[in-house]
Computed example of a mutant assay.
Amino acid sequence: MTVSVLVVDDSAFFRKRLTEILTASGQIRVVGVAANGREGVELAESLRPDVITMDYEMPVMDGISAVREIIKKRPVPVLMFSSLTYEGARITLDALEAGAVDFLPKNFEEIAQAGSGLQKTLVNRILDVAGSRPASRLPSSPKPALSSSPPAAKRPAPERQPARRRPAPPDGTKDNTVATRPKGRKTPAQHYAIVGIGTSTGGPVALQRVLAALPASFPAPIVLVQHMPASFTPAFAERLNKLCRIEVRQAVDGEYLRPGLALLAPGGKQMMVENRGGQPRVRILPGDERLNYRPSVDITFGSIARAFPGKGLGLVLTGMGADGREGCRMMRQRGSPIWTQDEKSSVIYGMPMAVEKAGLSDEVLALDEIGPRLVEGVC
């Protein structure tokens, strides 16, 4: 099946090269080109493409405003082009919040080279997002200012029940099986030593929705793994920190974990959790070029399994591929529960589907259920 694409960019060179690259793939048909956001909105309505590529800085109407208009009229996957700078990251995050599903770096030099990696990535990304579900826009809800008034009374925590644990094999060998729980059953409420959340495509909006639902007094530390370039993660951590009651920061090597703090893995690196002498902290390691994902959910979740056996909670949200499945397997083998986002609310049902199909998911939840469920099951 051929995927139809609308290209929106104010650069005639970029429009021409994108059209050539996409057409040469044999799987994509460029049905129209637009030189500004206003033309893009009009052509999106008349041509009804499967995917739209969108620049962010254009005359007449900028890319973010165009995305808002397009999503309002007919949700369609929009792939943004962005500069790999701090300011480019902030603009791209605004575009994702407006409804774009993903982004790629805008590199004129690389896009001009025949057979470049960016060209292959572009074609594959368009084919991947063609069947995605654009996320609805989020209202702005900045973190409330500190007040001298007393905090609202906390809801009584549900009665805690001991989590089910599988007995160790009698011969002392490693147990590679994974216990299953009846679908639809909630895992028992308990205090987790750590919560790990992994995500990719659609993750920035999903993480914002989940974390914004948590109180400042959330009793467990959180580690976040979002597939994102190194230049983007500082701006993303700052955005989350402004919009959430809990504190959110980009992790630094050796930083200690504590309740009410969420640490975001730096782009291009790997984040591991260690627990020595009762003082849990994160270690930030160089990104190994042999690994597809930097950061990788598998690596972070695997370290949680080793550092906090049976005391962690893993969540896998929207994203392409299967990163996180093996990390979830390790956590489940050590007795920790796993939750996944459901298909209907996922932008791309890849990562959570891989976990669910492997029989590793204890609870499958809609995106807007995850934050309240965390409060109910952890606080």
Rank of each mutant, 00 (worst) to 15 (best):
L127T: 07
P156D: 13
R185F: 02
V282R: 09
M272P: 00
P286T: 01
M61F: 07
A100K: 08
A216Q: 13
R15L: 04
P134A: 03
R137C: 01
G268S: 10
T121F: 03
G254R: 06
V41N: 11
R373W: 06
Q119W: 07
K73S: 15
A216P: 13
P142G: 13
P139A: 11
L317V: 07
M351P: 12
V76T: 15
F218I: 03
R290S: 15
S296D: 03
D55H: 09
E238Q: 14
L261S: 04
V60K: 07
V210W: 02
G310S: 12
T19G: 15
Q190K: 12
T85G: 05
G350S: 08
E326P: 03
P150Q: 01
G99I: 00
A153R: 14
A24M: 09
S147K: 09
S140F: 10
R74G: 13
F13P: 09
A235E: 06
S361K: 04
A112N: 14
Y56F: 11
L93A: 13
T23W: 02
M1Q: 15
L47S: 10
S147P: 04
V101Q: 12
R249G: 03
G184F: 05
T180D: 11
T92E: 08
T53K: 09
V33T: 15
L317Q: 10
D362P: 07
G335F: 03
K174I: 09
D10M: 02
G310M: 08
L360Y: 08
P170A: 15
L261M: 04
P139T: 05
A305M: 00
I70F: 06
V252G: 06
A98V: 00
G32W: 01
H227P: 09
G32V: 01
A153E: 14
K174A: 09
V297Q: 07
G115S: 07
S149Q: 14
T173I: 00
A230K: 11
F308C: 02
R325K: 15
A114Q: 01
D368I: 00
T19Q: 11
R258C: 09
L263F: 06
A12R: 11
F108C: 02
R38Y: 01
L264S: 12
R185T: 14
D55N: 13
F301Y: 08
T19A: 13
K186P: 10
T2G: 06
P182G: 05
A145Y: 05
V364L: 00
C244D: 02
E369Q: 14
N176E: 11
R17V: 10
T92H: 11
R155V: 14
T233R: 08
L118Y: 12
P309T: 11
T23K: 11
V347K: 07
A216R: 15
A251R: 01
D253Y: 03
I338Q: 06
G172A: 04
L257K: 06
V248G: 07
G287W: 04
A130Y: 05
P144T: 04
F232W: 12
I52K: 09
